[in-house]
Design a protein around this nucleic acid. Structure first.
Lengths: 343, 343
DNA sequence: ATGAAAGCGCTAACAT
DNA sequence: ATGTTAGCGCTTTCAT
C-alpha cells in the first residue's frame, strides 16, 4: 500500500522542512539558524548544518523574499549592457554589493523611454529592494513617482528627497578643464564635437567648453561645433563636416572618447597628423584610450567609483543608514594626442 | 472601534486579491486573465483591466514564481560584466530574450572558480529556469552536476546531454585563418602572442597558428611565441620580450584584439611602423578595432550571435522544444594593420 | 531556546 | 466561464 522499494519516491524537493525533519528540529529553528535571527543551542545548530550539507540544501530565495517582504536584490537600470563606459559603473556596483548578500539585476533601457519604463516595471515586479538609474530618459517626475515604491539612486542629475539620492559627475567642469588644457597649450581655434543635443551630459560638456573659451576671451564660434552621437562613426562624420566648413582649427575637444577615436581615424585618413597638426582631447578615459595611437589625452571620470558610490548609497537607504556619497572631480589625463601649439 | 476617518488605513499593498475585489471577481479570474490560461468573459476582463489600471497593480513575480515553480528568469554566468568581448554576448542574450517574458540575471565569475561557484549557487537559489555559462573555469563534471538541477547552455567547450547544450566558436580555425592570411601575404617569420596557458581559447588559437605554419612548411619556433594575458598591457610586455630575443619577424598574430592593441602601441613606441615593417593581426573584432590606427586586421567571431543562440537554445530546452544552435564560422576581416610583404 | 500555526501573493486543481 | 480551496517554501508572531 504505502511506498515500497520498487516504487521509488519522486525526487523530493529539498526544502527547509526536509532539512528540519532530517535534523530532528522544527522548521522555525532551521530558519532561525539560516538568518541568525535568534539564539539556537549548539547541538541543534550542528545537526542542522550537517543536514544542510548532506542534503545539499539551497534556500529558496523566492519564498524567502515573499515571506520577508524583501528580496536582497537591487535593480540597475542602465542603457546598454555592453557599453564600454557604463560597464565600469556596473562593475563598481557589483563590487560594492559583493559580500552584502545583495545581488544586482541589470536591465537595459537602450536610451528609449518606453524601454526604460518597461524594464523598470519588470524590476519592480520582481520586488527589488531599490533601484539605481544610470542616467537615461526618465523624467525627474517619473523618478519621483517610482521613488514612492522603492528607494532610488539616480546618476547624472540633481534631485534629492527622502527616497531619492542623486549622484553626478561634473560634466561641465570636466569639459572646462579639457578646453582650458588646450587653451593653455596655446590653442585658440578649438573645435568641439558634441554629443546628441538631447543628452544632458552632452549639453553640460558643451557648456563647459563654451565657458572656458569665453573666460579666455575667445569668441564662441558655432561653426566650430559639430554634433555627433557619442559613437565612433559620429566622430568621423563630424570631422568631415568640420573640414568642409574650411574653418581652421588646431585642436578638437570631443564630447567623449569614442567620438575622439572616430576623429583620430578620420584625421589620419585625411593625412592630418595628431597631435602635430591637430590636438585631440576626449572625455571618459575608457580602458582602451591609453592604447590608441597616439594615446588619447582625455578627462577621467570616476565611473567605477560612481558605481560603487551608487550601490553604497542605495544599500544605506534600504537599511536606513546615513550615507552621503562623495565623488572625485573629473581629472585631466594628458597623453600624446594633445600638444603645445608651436608658434 | 473599527477604522475611522482620522485613523487612515496603512497604505494597503495592492495584490491580486485587491484587484479581484475591486473588479468584483474572484482572484482566480484575475490570474487567468493575467496568464491567458483560460477564457474569460469580456465583461469581467474589462472590469479587471480597469481595476489593474486604476490601482496601478504590479504582479508579484516572487509569488508567481513560487506558485508556478518557474521564475521566467535565466542566469547568465559571465566573467566580467564590463568585458568588451563578452559584453556583445550579453547584449545578444538580452536581445534574444526580449519579448519572451524572460529576464536575464547577470553574474560575474571574475575568472575565479570559487567566485563562479558562489554566483552559480546564488542563481540557483533564485530558482532561475536555466543558466548560460560563458566559458569560465567550471569543470565539465561540475557543469554536469548543476545540469541535474537546471538546463544549462555552455559556451567554449563540447559537451552534450539531456540537460546541457554546448556552443562554441572554432578558435582553432580562426587562428588558422589569421595565420594563413599572413602566410599568403608572404610572411614566414610570424610571431604569436598567445593568451594565458590555462585558457582553453588561448590554447586552441595557438594550435591553429601552429597548424597553419606546419601546413605551409614553416617550422614552428617556440621562441617566436610569447604568452600574455588577453589584456593590452600584456601585449606591450610580449613585444618587449619578443624584441629582446633578437629574432626577426615581419608579422605578429595576437591571441585577441586587446593584446593586439598593446602590440601596436609598443611597436609604435619602438619606432616600428605597422604595417610597413610589421603586420599585426588580432582576434575578436571588437567594436573599437576598426578605429585603431591603423585599423586592425582581425578575426571576427560571432559573439553577439553566440549570445543570441545561447539564449534561444536555453529557452528551447526550458520549454521542451527542439532547437539546434548554428554558429557562423570565424571570419577574416582585412584592414590596414596587415600588408603584403615586399621582397 | 524551541515548536505550532498563520500568512506572504499567487496559481492550479477541483468543483460547479 | 467562474469561484473555492489548497498549497508553493519560507518567516514570524505567539505560545510554552
Amino acid at each position: 500500500m504505502s511506498h515500497s522499494l520498487d516504487a521509488p519516491l519522486p525526487p523530493e524537493n529539498i526544502t527547509l522542512e526536509v532539512v528540519a525533519k532530517v535534523a530532528g528540529v522544527s522548521p522555525a529553528t532551521v530558519s532561525r539558524i539560516l538568518n541568525g535571527s535568534a539564539r539556537v543551542s549548539d547541538r541543534k545548530r550542528s545537526a542542522v548544518m550537517a543536514a544542510i550539507k548532506t542534503l545539499n540544501y539551497r534556500p529558496n530565495a523566492l519564498a524567502r523574499g515573499l515571506a520577508q517582504g524583501r528580496t536582497n536584490s537591487i535593480g540597475v537600470l542602465t542603457q546598454d549592457i555592453a557599453s564600454p563606459f557604463y560597464g565600469e559603473a556596473l562593475r563598481g556596483v557589483e563590487d560594492a554589493l559583493a559580500g552584502t548578500g545583495m545581488i544586482p539585476l541589470f536591465a537595459s533601457g537602450h536610451w528609449r523611454l518606453e524601454d526604460e519604463i518597461e524594464r523598470m516595471e519588470h524590476l519592480l515586479s520582481r520586488r527589488v529592494d531599490g533601484v539605481i538609474v544610470l542616467t537615461g530618459k526618465l523624467s525627474d517626475a517619473q523618478i519621483e513617482a517610482y521613488a514612492k515604491v522603492v528607494p532610488i539612486v539616480v546618476t547624472g542629475r540633481h534631485m534629492q528627497s527622502e527616497q531619492v539620492t542623486s549622484l553626478s559627475i561634473d560634466n561641465s567642469l570636466g569639459a572646462y578643464i579639457a578646453t582650458r588644457h588646450l587653451i593653455e597649450y596655446g590653442h585658440t581655434r578649438i573645435a568641439h564635437v558634441a554629443g546628441p543635443a538631447d543628452h544632458i551630459d552632452a549639453l553640460s560638456r558643451l557648456k563647459g567648453y563654451r565657458d572656458a573659451l569665453v573666460e579666455a576671451g575667445i569668441a564662441f564660434d558655432p561653426e566650430l561645433v559639430a554634433h555627433a552621437d557619442f559613437h565612433e562613426p559620429g566622430g568621423v562624420l563630424a570631422i568631415h563636416q568640420l573640414l568642409a566648413t574650411r574653418k581652421t582649427f588646431s585642436a578638437v575637444f570631443a564630447a567623449n572618447d569614442q567620438t575622439a577615436f572616430g576623429i583620430q581615424l578620420a584625421l589620419s585618413r585625411h593625412g592630418i597628423r595628431v597631435p602635430d597638426e591637430i590636438s585631440v582631447v576626449g572625455f571618459d578615459d575608457l580602458p582602451v584610450s591609453s592604447y590608441m595611437i597616439p594615446p588619447l589625452t582625455t578627462i577621467r571620470q570616476p565611473v567605477y567609483e560612481m558605481g560603487v558610490a551608487s550601490a553604497k548609497a542605495l544599500v544605506a537607504m534600504i537599511t536606513g543608514q546615513p550615507y552621503t556619497p562623495q565623488l572625485a572631480p573629473p581629472e585631466l589625463i594628458v597623453r600624446a594626442s594633445s600638444k603645445l601649439l608651436r608658434r
